[in-house]
Amino acid sequence: MKLIIGAMHEELQDSIAFYKLNKVENEKFTIYKNEEIMFCITGIGLVNAAAQLSYILSKYDIDSIINIGTSGGCDKELKQGDILIIDKIYNSVADATAFGYAYGQVPRMPKYYETSNKDIIKTISKAKIKNIASSDIFIHSTEQVKNFINKIEDKISVLDMECFAYAQTAYLFEKEFSVIKIISDVIGEKNTNNVQFNDFIKIAGKEILEILKKIL
């Protein structure tokens, strides 16, 4: 069974309706499924993301995981509405450099996580391939990018608050993990952020459905 996982209901509600999924859990975790696919809304933040994905992988038979949703950008080459396939995933606030680890690396864990995107890249030809960094900080200023993101020894273009937790959990459970993001705004680029987020997320939800139709 494939698992589609995201932070916000608004991002996935059109897809949940289209695939006519049944809500199977709603007490602690919001989970929808049919015989072939499962959707989970984890909520925002690294702990929520890791806890809920761990719960699902412990209880259900999941073959592969796709995280899809909206994210902010910190790359001037991007614009609102761009579709991205994520390659590498970093933690933007992990700092164990005093012990010889790279900035962004959790001790005794990989420096970053790579995604399983070969089939998706073939299907979504217009997507750009970029790297993402996650933390529990809502990064929204160029100063924060300088303080947290630019310390990573790689080019980071995308920011969110869940992806790293999904990736590390998938790694520990030895599951294939892919990530697709739609850029909601770009830090410091006012001219590219034409649609306010509350309106943009509705547009993005429809785009997410069209993407999922191609890859599921």
Rank of each mutant, 00 (worst) to 15 (best):
M1E: 10
I4S: 04
A7Y: 09
H9C: 00
E11P: 02
S15W: 05
S15P: 01
I16A: 06
I16M: 08
F18E: 13
Y19R: 09
Y19V: 05
K20C: 03
K20D: 07
K20P: 00
E25H: 13
N26Y: 12
N34C: 05
E35G: 01
I37W: 00
M38W: 00
F39K: 07
C40N: 07
I41N: 02
I41M: 02
T42S: 08
T42D: 00
L46D: 00
A49G: 01
A49C: 01
A50D: 06
Q52P: 00
L53K: 02
Y55F: 14
Y55E: 02
I56D: 03
I56C: 04
K59H: 14
Y60S: 02
D61F: 02
D61E: 15
I62W: 02
D63I: 05
I65G: 08
I66E: 01
I68W: 08
G69W: 08
G69N: 06
T70M: 15
C74I: 02
D75F: 10
E77V: 00
L78G: 06
L78N: 09
Q80E: 11
L84D: 03
L84I: 15
I85R: 06
D87I: 01
Y90V: 07
N91G: 03
S92K: 03
S92G: 03
T97C: 09
T97A: 10
T97F: 04
F99N: 12
G100N: 13
G104A: 07
Q105N: 09
Q105M: 11
V106R: 11
P107F: 01
P107A: 05
M109P: 00
P110D: 08
P110M: 05
Y112H: 08
E114A: 00
E114M: 11
T115R: 02
D119H: 04
I121G: 08
I121A: 13
I121P: 09
I121W: 09
K122W: 01
I124Q: 05
K128C: 05
K128D: 09
I129W: 10
K130E: 12
N131P: 13
I137C: 07
F138M: 11
F138P: 13
I139R: 06
S141T: 15
S141M: 15
T142L: 15
E143C: 09
V145W: 14
N147Y: 13
K151T: 13
D154F: 01
S157D: 07
L159S: 07
D160N: 11
D160S: 06
M161Y: 10
A165V: 13
A165N: 10
Y166I: 05
Y166N: 02
Q168L: 12
T169H: 10
Y171F: 15
F173I: 04
S178Y: 10
V179H: 08
V179K: 06
V179R: 06
I180W: 14
I180R: 11
K181S: 07
I182P: 12
I183P: 09
S184Y: 09
D185I: 11
I187L: 14
G188R: 11
E189N: 14
E189V: 15
N194W: 12
V195M: 12
V195G: 10
Q196M: 12
N198R: 09
N198F: 14
D199K: 14
D199I: 11
D199G: 12
I201T: 15
I203A: 03
A204G: 06
K206P: 00
E207A: 08
E207F: 02
E207T: 11
L212H: 07
L212D: 06
K213W: 00
K213R: 14
I215Y: 00
L216R: 06
